[in-house]
């Protein structure tokens, strides 16, 4: 049964990489059920992330947000800060897609805080970029300018010409 769970997860990932998002979702749901059966929180967390990602490409952003929130909750339970940062980043982008800029800003700020805490300059740069765009969308150009400056500073520091 445990191996079956892993096989479902691998099938879900393979369909995802092939662009078969509905099939990927079906397999990841099976994987999720087995992870729950075993009380395997790490596998459950991975399934939520994979389900959130697949729903993005079906345009079901609201469903993705719910899965990413479950990822976030489990990452905190598992005390995995890198995964927590990733979940906040995904939620920030998903709420931008949903045009809910207030929530998007909130999650990008959380991502920024964790990236700073972890000394992750690449993550911090990405958070500043995303946050700046969310501020522009919400009409707060003053804060957007501060973020763009931060993004430029970090891009120069890490040698990211693009």
């Amino acid at each position: 049964r445990a191996a079956q769970g892993r096989a479902y997860g691998n099938l879900g990932n393979t369909h995802y990489l092939l662009g078969n998002f509905s099939e990927a979702i079906a397999f990841h749901k099976e994987r999720l059920a087995i992870a729950k059966e075993f009380g395997d929180k790490a596998a459950e967390r991975r399934a939520y992330s994979n389900l959130g990602n697949a729903h993005i490409f079906l345009g079901k952003f609201d469903v993705s947000a719910e899965y990413y929130k479950k990822t976030l909750q489990l990452s905190r339970q598992l005390k995995d800060q890198a995964v927590e940062a990733q979940a906040c980043y995904s939620l920030g982008n998903t709420y931008t897609l949903l045009r809910d800029y207030e929530r998007a800003i909130d999650f990008h700020l959380k991502h920024l805080c964790i990236a700073q805490e972890l000394g992750d300059r690449v993550g911090e740069g990405r958070a500043a970029w995303s946050l700046g765009n969310a501020y522009v969308s919400s009409g707060d150009h003053g804060k957007a300018l501060g973020c763009a400056r931060k993004h430029l500073e970090i891009s120069q520091e890490i040698g990211d010409k693009n």
């Binding site: 769970g5 997860g9 691998n10 992330s49 993005i56 490409f57 931008t96």
Partner: peptide
Amino acid sequence: FQRLRIIQVDSVRRWMDDLKLMTECE
């Protein structure tokens, strides 16, 4: 899919490009 093609925000487009290849492995 039409909705996905017209995404205007650069940082979101970049995130989605990365996401296409992002899987949580077993």
